[in-house]
Amino acid sequence: MTRDMVFIHTCTDQEEVARLSQRYDFLAVSVVDREQRLVSIITIDNVIYIIQK
Protein backbone atom coordinates (compact mmCIF):
# COMPACT_ATOMS: atom_id res chain seq x y z
CA MET A 1 0.00 0.00 0.00
CA THR A 2 1.26 3.46 -0.86
CA ARG A 3 1.09 5.80 2.11
CA ASP A 4 2.50 8.87 0.37
CA MET A 5 -0.47 10.22 -1.54
CA VAL A 6 0.06 12.53 -4.49
CA PHE A 7 -2.72 15.03 -5.08
CA ILE A 8 -3.24 18.65 -6.02
CA HIS A 9 -5.18 21.40 -4.32
CA THR A 10 -8.00 23.31 -5.96
CA CYS A 11 -5.80 26.43 -6.22
CA THR A 12 -2.86 24.67 -7.97
CA ASP A 13 -1.84 26.23 -11.29
CA GLN A 14 -2.68 24.13 -14.36
CA GLU A 15 0.92 24.11 -15.60
CA GLU A 16 2.01 22.63 -12.25
CA VAL A 17 -0.66 19.94 -12.67
CA ALA A 18 0.75 19.06 -16.09
CA ARG A 19 4.32 18.85 -14.69
CA LEU A 20 3.17 16.67 -11.80
CA SER A 21 1.32 14.30 -14.15
CA GLN A 22 4.37 13.98 -16.38
CA ARG A 23 6.76 13.46 -13.46
CA TYR A 24 4.73 10.62 -11.94
CA ASP A 25 3.32 9.29 -15.24
CA PHE A 26 -0.26 9.43 -13.95
CA LEU A 27 -3.41 8.85 -15.97
CA ALA A 28 -5.39 10.88 -13.43
CA VAL A 29 -4.65 13.15 -10.46
CA SER A 30 -6.96 13.76 -7.51
CA VAL A 31 -8.00 17.33 -6.70
CA VAL A 32 -8.67 18.09 -3.03
CA ASP A 33 -9.85 21.09 -1.02
CA ARG A 34 -8.31 22.62 2.12
CA GLU A 35 -9.53 19.75 4.32
CA GLN A 36 -8.13 17.26 1.78
CA ARG A 37 -11.58 16.11 0.69
CA LEU A 38 -11.84 14.85 -2.87
CA VAL A 39 -13.35 17.50 -5.13
CA SER A 40 -12.51 16.30 -8.63
CA ILE A 41 -10.12 14.32 -10.80
CA ILE A 42 -7.91 15.68 -13.58
CA THR A 43 -7.51 13.08 -16.33
CA ILE A 44 -4.73 12.64 -18.85
CA ASP A 45 -6.99 14.19 -21.52
CA ASN A 46 -7.06 17.43 -19.54
CA VAL A 47 -3.30 17.33 -19.05
CA ILE A 48 -2.66 16.82 -22.78
CA TYR A 49 -4.90 19.80 -23.54
CA ILE A 50 -2.91 21.96 -21.09
CA ILE A 51 0.42 20.88 -22.60
CA GLN A 52 -0.74 21.56 -26.17
CA LYS A 53 -2.04 24.98 -25.18
Rank of each mutant, 00 (worst) to 15 (best):
Y49G: 02
R19F: 13
K53V: 04
H9T: 04
I42H: 03
I48R: 13
T12V: 04
D45S: 11
V17R: 06
T2K: 13
D25W: 02
V17S: 08
R34E: 15
C11H: 07
I51N: 08
D4C: 01
I48K: 12
K53A: 13
R3M: 10
Q36R: 14
I42Q: 03
R3S: 13
L38F: 08
M5Q: 13
I41C: 10
D45W: 02
T12F: 01
I41F: 12
S40A: 15
D25Y: 01
D13P: 00
V31W: 07
Y24K: 10
I41Q: 13
V32M: 13
R34A: 15
A18S: 14
I50R: 06
E16I: 13
D33A: 05
F7A: 14
I41T: 13
R37Y: 05
S21F: 04
Y49I: 00
T12G: 00
R23E: 14
C11T: 01
H9C: 01
E16T: 14
S40D: 15
R23L: 14
M1V: 04
S21D: 04
V39Y: 04
L20F: 06
E35I: 02
Y24T: 07
V39R: 13
I50W: 05
S40I: 00
S21V: 12
V17K: 07
Y49V: 03
L27T: 07
I50V: 14
I50E: 12
Y24Q: 10
I41L: 14
R23G: 04
V31F: 07
V39P: 00
F7R: 02
Q36T: 06
L38P: 01
T2F: 04
T2C: 10
K53P: 00
Y49M: 03
S30N: 01
R34P: 01
R19N: 15
L20S: 10
Q22T: 06
S40P: 00
V17H: 02
A18K: 06
R3E: 14
I48M: 12
V32R: 10
Q36E: 09
N46R: 08
I42T: 04
Y24E: 14
L20M: 15
I48C: 06
N46E: 15
H9W: 01
E35M: 01
N46T: 06
I48E: 09
V32K: 14
D4Q: 09
S21C: 15
M1G: 14
R37D: 08
V47H: 08
V32Y: 07
T12M: 09
R23K: 15
T43Q: 10
H9A: 02
I51P: 00
T43A: 12
Y24M: 06
F7H: 05
T12S: 06
T10G: 09
V32C: 11
A28K: 06
T2M: 11
M1W: 04
Q22D: 08
D45I: 01
R23W: 09
M5N: 06
A28M: 03
D33T: 03
I8M: 10
